[in-house]
Design a protein around this nucleic acid. Sequence first.
DNA 1: GCCGTTTTCGGCCCGACTGTTTTCAGTCG
Length: 575
Amino acid sequence: MYNPQIAKMFEEIASMLELEEGDHRFEVLAYRKAALTLETTQEDVADIYRKEGIKGLMKLPGVGKGLAGKIEEFMAKGRMRKYDEMKRKYPIDFQGLMKIQGMGAKKAYKLYANLRIKNVDDLKKAIAQHKISGLEGFGKKSEEEMGKGIAMLESGGGRMLLGLALPEAESIIARLKESRLVDRVTIAGSARRMKETVGDLDILTSSREAQRVMDFISKMPEVERVILMGPTKITVRLKIGLNCDIRVVDDASFGAALQYFTGNKDHNVKVRQIAIKNGYKLNEYGLFDKRGKNLAGPDEESIYNRLDMDIMDPEMREDRGEVELSLAHKLPRLVGLSDIRGDLHVHTNHSDGAHSIMDMANYARKIGRQYIGITDHSKSEYVAHGMDEKKFVKHLDEIDKANDKLDGSIRLLKSAEVDILKDGGLDLDDKTMDMMDYRLASVHTSLRMGRQEMTKRVIKAMESGYMSIFAHPTDRKINERSPIDMDLDKVFEAAADNNVILEIDGAPDRLDLNDENILKAKRYGARFSIDTDSHSMQNLTLMRYGVSTAKRGWVLPGSVVNTLGVERLLKEFKK
DNA sequence: GCCGTTTTCGGCCCGACTGTTTTCAGTCG
């Protein structure tokens, strides 16, 4: 996989260009944009190049003739002349140093020019010896902030799971509402777009008492320390190890600000370009005409509507074609939480869940589910107390009895999460599986198997005729474990051929399939099941993470099986 | 260096905050 390596080189070239004489602003932007594209492109550039040559590379957004040539050069020779030349002049670890808050290319270079600081270790030593504060343009405060920045990095400054960050944001929002200092308050940024991980939290409020809001925030119990505070913006470090930006605007600007701070960046750039084409100017304070009159209303929708666009769900705002569809008034109606009727991936204390069948059923009914599928583990998962055939017969019988007791108030479906064995066989015998309403199947062992073997393994399981749903298909764990290596195109094709439903597992550390893979699967006509993979009653409420992931993959309600009523769903499983 | 319903040249988002400044460069989102 060349992508991360080349992305890093482009990033570094961008940093070095910032130090060169003359105006390289836009060249810098171009390198950074291409680096971002490479970081987020799943397909290896080597594969793209093999299939479509340099023209294929140039199809990548932000990659033109020049940068495509540099990618080609690196793949052929293992080096990039421009990078090597510049690196000789600036032998600095920009990537490492610039991860420190407040450090950009220019400061990094000053440190190198004056103190020969090349990397974070050098910087640490210089700080310890108080060499920074003596430098022109730096002071005592700079030295302190750098020290704090390094400490923050070392305590894990990476991106946090949405499932941890969003509840924290919601409790901060609740606190602000209770304070009565704010008119409106809401989440913005990547958390509002429900990205699987977030680098920080953005919260937007409107108030006539900005200063009091600032003071209030700085004293909240969630806050570890204030990083910066101005009249309308405050950045704080939260105790959970995440930064949080909170902005205060006038209520009249709230809609414009919410649009602006929700992003993402590329989406905003396009919307602003449309504003310019219409003779307007769009910023976080409003939509202004030539005379400077603010045309925006109090909400986001009025801004889009003024531009003759339809408003789209925040999850769509990633510049993946939603702007164009919105202009054409052809936005799809995506699946929403209220479409979901059941949950087809639920564990109980018969394997590794915390609660009984009845507890799970009652809780699920309380939060509005019409049915849930009980999917305890099969015998290979002995660490998860997986059951063998004999135990399953008894277990399935208990589900029947629970259904009798529940008397139709919620329906329990008989199922299992069956292991896909190393050879592609399933972990229970046919007779036992025949007793179930449907079956989940998933990979839990031999995760490092090679690509071809893994692909064959999964497809063989799909062809068994017993696999109703492919649960957490790639088996990745965010920030913990890479996805298993398989040819997703072939797997998705086999799923469609064998009527296998693909799961969108809503457990916040899985979110599997993810947005990109959902978009890919859709091209093969995939159908989905959005589940929680619950191991406790509380987990049943995680459905929103799965639904938002589906939205990020532009999933329509009609292709999600658990939007169906239970009778229709059972008919689907019989097919 | 990229890109195209201002299309092969001339744009490319722009406002907030900080530290070290005495008017602003650097960084961030």
